[in-house]
Amino acid sequence: MVLRFLKTCATVLCLSVLIGTTARADVAFLVILKVPQANEDAFDALAEKMLDASKADEGLLIYEFARTGETVYGYERYTDDAAHERHQVLIKPFLPELIELAEFERIVTLTDISERSRPGFEAMGAEIGALIGGVAQGSLGD
Protein backbone atom coordinates (compact mmCIF):
# COMPACT_ATOMS: atom_id res chain seq x y z
CA MET A 1 0.00 0.00 0.00
CA VAL A 2 2.86 2.40 0.81
CA LEU A 3 4.52 1.52 -2.50
CA ARG A 4 1.30 2.28 -4.41
CA PHE A 5 0.99 5.62 -2.58
CA LEU A 6 4.60 6.52 -3.45
CA LYS A 7 4.07 5.57 -7.12
CA THR A 8 0.93 7.73 -7.21
CA CYS A 9 2.79 10.65 -5.64
CA ALA A 10 5.65 10.26 -8.13
CA THR A 11 3.20 10.20 -11.04
CA VAL A 12 1.40 13.31 -9.80
CA LEU A 13 4.73 15.08 -9.29
CA CYS A 14 5.90 14.19 -12.82
CA LEU A 15 2.62 15.36 -14.34
CA SER A 16 2.68 18.62 -12.42
CA VAL A 17 6.25 19.28 -13.58
CA LEU A 18 5.29 18.56 -17.19
CA ILE A 19 2.17 20.70 -16.99
CA GLY A 20 4.07 23.45 -15.19
CA THR A 21 6.71 23.61 -17.91
CA THR A 22 4.17 23.89 -20.71
CA ALA A 23 1.84 26.37 -19.01
CA ARG A 24 2.97 29.88 -19.82
CA ALA A 25 1.77 33.21 -18.58
CA ASP A 26 3.40 35.30 -21.29
CA VAL A 27 1.35 37.09 -23.92
CA ALA A 28 2.63 37.36 -27.49
CA PHE A 29 1.01 38.43 -30.71
CA LEU A 30 1.67 39.69 -34.20
CA VAL A 31 -0.03 42.78 -35.65
CA ILE A 32 -0.07 43.22 -39.42
CA LEU A 33 -0.66 46.76 -40.67
CA LYS A 34 -0.99 48.28 -44.12
CA VAL A 35 0.82 51.62 -44.25
CA PRO A 36 0.46 53.47 -47.55
CA GLN A 37 3.74 54.81 -48.94
CA ALA A 38 2.46 58.36 -48.47
CA ASN A 39 2.21 57.71 -44.69
CA GLU A 40 5.54 55.89 -44.34
CA ASP A 41 7.58 58.75 -42.84
CA ALA A 42 4.83 59.81 -40.42
CA PHE A 43 4.28 56.19 -39.38
CA ASP A 44 8.01 55.64 -38.79
CA ALA A 45 8.13 58.78 -36.61
CA LEU A 46 5.11 57.56 -34.64
CA ALA A 47 6.63 54.09 -34.26
CA GLU A 48 9.79 55.70 -32.86
CA LYS A 49 7.71 57.61 -30.28
CA MET A 50 5.90 54.40 -29.31
CA LEU A 51 9.20 52.54 -28.98
CA ASP A 52 10.72 55.32 -26.87
CA ALA A 53 7.67 55.35 -24.58
CA SER A 54 7.96 51.58 -24.20
CA LYS A 55 11.65 51.38 -23.26
CA ALA A 56 11.01 51.39 -19.51
CA ASP A 57 7.73 49.46 -19.70
CA GLU A 58 7.88 46.88 -16.90
CA GLY A 59 7.04 43.40 -18.12
CA LEU A 60 7.53 44.17 -21.80
CA LEU A 61 9.86 41.60 -23.34
CA ILE A 62 9.74 42.49 -27.05
CA TYR A 63 8.13 45.36 -28.93
CA GLU A 64 9.31 45.79 -32.50
CA PHE A 65 8.25 46.70 -36.01
CA ALA A 66 9.45 45.47 -39.41
CA ARG A 67 8.44 46.61 -42.89
CA THR A 68 8.11 44.88 -46.25
CA GLY A 69 6.75 47.34 -48.79
CA GLU A 70 3.50 48.78 -47.45
CA THR A 71 3.09 46.00 -44.88
CA VAL A 72 4.33 46.59 -41.35
CA TYR A 73 4.61 43.74 -38.86
CA GLY A 74 4.49 44.49 -35.17
CA TYR A 75 5.62 41.82 -32.73
CA GLU A 76 4.78 42.18 -29.05
CA ARG A 77 5.59 39.92 -26.10
CA TYR A 78 4.87 40.53 -22.41
CA THR A 79 5.62 38.59 -19.25
CA ASP A 80 1.91 38.28 -18.39
CA ASP A 81 -1.59 39.77 -18.74
CA ALA A 82 -0.86 42.58 -16.29
CA ALA A 83 2.20 43.70 -18.28
CA HIS A 84 0.16 43.67 -21.50
CA GLU A 85 -2.59 45.72 -19.85
CA ARG A 86 -0.05 48.29 -18.58
CA HIS A 87 1.35 48.61 -22.09
CA GLN A 88 -2.11 49.18 -23.55
CA VAL A 89 -2.58 52.13 -21.20
CA LEU A 90 0.87 53.48 -22.12
CA ILE A 91 0.20 53.25 -25.87
CA LYS A 92 -3.39 54.54 -25.80
CA PRO A 93 -2.44 58.22 -26.51
CA PHE A 94 -0.76 57.10 -29.77
CA LEU A 95 -3.71 55.10 -31.13
CA PRO A 96 -5.64 57.91 -32.87
CA GLU A 97 -2.61 58.78 -35.01
CA LEU A 98 -1.83 55.10 -35.59
CA ILE A 99 -5.36 54.48 -36.83
CA GLU A 100 -5.08 57.55 -39.09
CA LEU A 101 -1.81 56.37 -40.66
CA ALA A 102 -2.30 52.62 -40.90
CA GLU A 103 -4.98 50.03 -41.51
CA PHE A 104 -5.05 47.00 -39.22
CA GLU A 105 -5.09 43.90 -41.43
CA ARG A 106 -4.65 41.11 -38.87
CA ILE A 107 -3.84 40.46 -35.25
CA VAL A 108 -2.79 36.92 -34.42
CA THR A 109 -2.03 35.66 -30.92
CA LEU A 110 1.05 33.46 -30.68
CA THR A 111 0.71 32.18 -27.11
CA ASP A 112 -2.15 30.68 -25.16
CA ILE A 113 -4.39 33.59 -24.19
CA SER A 114 -5.89 33.66 -20.73
CA GLU A 115 -9.61 33.95 -20.16
CA ARG A 116 -8.82 37.39 -18.75
CA SER A 117 -7.22 38.60 -22.01
CA ARG A 118 -9.38 36.73 -24.51
CA PRO A 119 -12.32 39.23 -24.62
CA GLY A 120 -9.96 42.14 -25.38
CA PHE A 121 -8.27 40.28 -28.23
CA GLU A 122 -11.61 39.11 -29.62
CA ALA A 123 -12.93 42.70 -29.48
CA MET A 124 -9.98 43.74 -31.68
CA GLY A 125 -10.89 41.01 -34.16
CA ALA A 126 -7.77 39.00 -33.33
CA GLU A 127 -7.33 35.49 -34.54
CA ILE A 128 -6.68 33.40 -31.44
CA GLY A 129 -3.79 31.13 -32.26
CA ALA A 130 -3.35 27.75 -30.60
CA LEU A 131 0.14 27.35 -29.19
CA ILE A 132 1.84 24.31 -30.68
CA GLY A 133 5.07 24.66 -28.74
CA GLY A 134 8.20 26.72 -28.57
CA VAL A 135 11.60 27.26 -27.09
CA ALA A 136 13.38 30.38 -25.90
CA GLN A 137 16.74 31.25 -24.47
CA GLY A 138 17.66 33.96 -22.02
CA SER A 139 14.91 36.08 -20.52
CA LEU A 140 12.05 34.36 -22.37
CA GLY A 141 12.77 30.81 -21.26
CA ASP A 142 12.12 29.88 -17.66
Rank of each mutant, 00 (worst) to 15 (best):
R67Y: 00
D44L: 07
D57Q: 15
S117H: 00
S117E: 14
A56M: 07
L110H: 01
E100I: 00
D57A: 14
F94A: 04
K49W: 00
G59I: 09
I19D: 00
G20N: 09
L51T: 13
A56Y: 05
E100V: 01
L15I: 08
E64S: 12
A45N: 09
D44N: 11
A10L: 15
E76G: 06
R106Y: 13
T8F: 12
L60H: 00
E115G: 15
K92A: 11
A53D: 15
R118D: 01
L101F: 07
P93L: 04
V31G: 07
D26M: 06
M50I: 14
A42Q: 12
V27M: 05
A83R: 03
E58T: 12
K92H: 09
I99F: 08
Y78I: 06
F43S: 03
D112Y: 00
V72G: 01
R106H: 15
K7S: 11
T8Y: 05
K92N: 10
L46H: 07
V89H: 07
A42M: 06
V72K: 03
T11V: 13
K49L: 13
I99N: 11
Y78H: 12
N39E: 14
S114N: 01
G69K: 02
V12S: 12
M50G: 02
A102M: 04
L51E: 13
S54K: 00
T79K: 14
L90C: 06
L90W: 05
A47G: 09
A42H: 05
D44A: 11
E115M: 06
Y75W: 09
E64L: 03
A53L: 04
D81F: 07
T111W: 05
S54M: 03
P36L: 08
T109F: 02
P93S: 08
